[in-house]
Design a protein around this nucleic acid. Structure first.
Length: 454
RNA sequence: GGAGGGAUGGCAGAGUGGACGAUUGCGACGGUCUUGAAAACCGUAGUAGGCAACAGCUUACCGAGGGUUCGAAUCCCUCUCCCUCCGCCA
């Protein structure tokens, strides 16, 4: 969510920023509703103030009336009682009369309130549809064709004296990926990992988590895999990406598309201490995506499934530090690639390709020799205060003053299926076996090579 | 799934229609005292919005949303969450 003050003060600049993303947002409607909202507020608050003060007067009248009534009760019949009775009646009539004015004010307030509710509802909904603004360092361009690809680095490109096979053939031949049974169980874009395949993935998860815990200083989180729709809204997934989310038919629960969604909301509605920052979290979760947008794309193999596993890093940081931390996060993801012996390249996403919630994003792509593709294994982003605003997460500055929004960053560390692909395809041998990267062997009972039947 | 009880400021916990944005205690912060600290004493304190923007004024907020009323923390309705007991269960 953007700061409404920013839209109010620099609407044309905001529009230009959104145009850079090749996106659209109802800025004019927001401005109109925001203006009207403030007009109504002034009217309605003045009315409320009037009503409050008259109500207080009535309260005093009622108090006096009660006193007199009590006094009347204690007084024996006679001239004194008659006089009191007259006083009581007069006061009662006065109170009744005094109610007229505030009652009318109340009716007016109700009319304004109705319009206010309508305007605010629309305003808030529209604000949720406005994407984050990209950072000035992001290359400008309407789509992914304008991304900047950096020179490949890391390990040298693997060389073979035979034709390297794609992972779907390797996996099937070794009987470690079972596509047919995956489809039998759940339909297209699902697969079963078997034997050393399943173990390889589990080893990778352990290896990645341990690396981030022990070398990069993260705290491990195990979040719920299903969360409320509000939580999706907080991360910026809703309302825009509703079609891509799996949801429960009866409860207001949705299956994570990424751990980022849950991690963003860990501190929802909380006020942190500045001294607590940065908060560094890492979580392993499965991720579920309908992939409606990519129907017919990447249908072979395990590159794009409806369910996949991912280790995700997430940080809440001081706003002044977030771009520094973005580079750290990039390094953490890179470390995993290096340890696994990958050849990889960094991509600076162009304004038109940066995700809805993000101000700046780097991708890491890993070379996979069998399918001959660069595979996106990590996305490293700074959301600045966009997600913190949506999720109402603030921090109290040590030196006092107004509460501030922290910046949030997320980075895959890494996405499992594509890492599996790279390992299988790059480490394959002429006989179809696969060499297990050294760092994973301790997690696989010392297994060095995945051979048929292992 | 059944029955009952709850939700109030950082925490604990009063408040059942009018002076309550809210008693009190603890904690926090500032000060006095002290060589320093503790104790004691004094004082300050929530969040969000609007207007003016220098101090100022104002509205809303007692789990959430509606309603009754001149007026709601307090009464009514709906929802969410928590606790206790029973049932079921990894």
């Amino acid at each position: 969510m953007l700061d409404i003050n920013l839209i109010r003060e620099k609407p044309e600049w905001v529009k230009a920023q959104i145009a850079k993303r090749n996106a659209e947002a109802p800025i004019d409607q927001i401005l109109a509703d925001d203006g009207r909202r403030r007009e109504i507020l002034q009217e309605v608050e003045a009315l409320r103030q009037q009503r409050n003060s008259t109500s207080k007067e009535i309260g005093q009248l009622m108090g006096a009336l009660k006193k007199k009534e009590a006094e009347l009760k204690r007084t024996a019949a006679g001239p004194a009682a008659d006089a009191l009775k007259a006083e009581v009646e007069a006061l009662a009539a006065q109170a009744e009369e005094a109610k007229d004015a505030p009652r009318k004010i109340g009716e007016q307030i109700a009319i304004y309130d109705e319009e206010l509710r309508e305007v605010e509802t629309r305003l808030n909904e529209n604000l949720l549809w406005v994407p984050n603004l990209t950072h000035e360092s992001v290359p400008v361009g309407p789509d992914e064709a304008h991304n900047i690809f950096h020179e490949p680095q890391g390990a040298p490109e693997p060389q073979f004296d035979f034709e390297p096979k794609p992972h779907w053939d390797l996996g099937t031949d070794l009987n470690i990926i079972d596509f047919e049974r995956g489809v039998k169980l759940s339909g297209s874009r699902f697969y079963v990992l078997r034997g050393a395949g399943a173990r390889l993935q589990r080893a990778l998860i352990q290896f990645m988590l341990n690396t981030h815990l022990e070398k990069h200083g993260f705290t491990e989180i195990y979040p719920p895999f299903m969360v409320r729709s509000q939580i999706f809204e907080g991360a910026g997934q809703l309302p825009k990406f509703f079609d891509n989310i799996y949801r429960d038919a009866e409860e207001d629960l949705m299956w994570l598309g990424t751990a980022e969604i849950a991690l963003t909301s860990l501190h929802r509605d909380e006020i942190l201490d500045e001294a607590e920052l940065p908060l560094k979290y890492v979580a392993y979760t499965p991720c579920w995506r309908r992939e409606k947008m990519s129907a017919g794309k990447d249908v072979r193999g395990i590159k794009r499934g409806h369910q996949f596993d991912k280790v995700e890093m997430y940080q809440f940081v001081h706003p002044d530090k977030s771009y520094e931390v973005l580079e750290d996060m990039k390094q953490y993801a890179q470390d995993i690639c290096d340890l696994l012996g990958f050849r990889y390249r960094f991509v600076d996403l162009a304004t038109g390709d940066v995700g809805f919630s993000m101000a700046k994003t780097y991708d890491i792509e890993v070379w996979a020799a069998g399918c001959g593709e660069w595979l996106e294994v990590s996305s490293i982003s700074n959301a600045e205060d966009f997600q913190a605003r949506r999720s109402n997460i603030k921090y109290r500055p040590t030196e006092g003053g107004k509460l501030q929004y922290p910046h949030t960053l997320n980075a895959s560390g890494l996405a499992l299926p594509r890492v599996m692909i790279a390992i299988m395809e790059n480490n394959q041998q002429a006989d179809g076996s696969i060499v297990v990267p050294e760092v994973l062997r301790p997690y696989m009972g010392g297994l060095q090579v995945i051979e048929p039947g292992s």
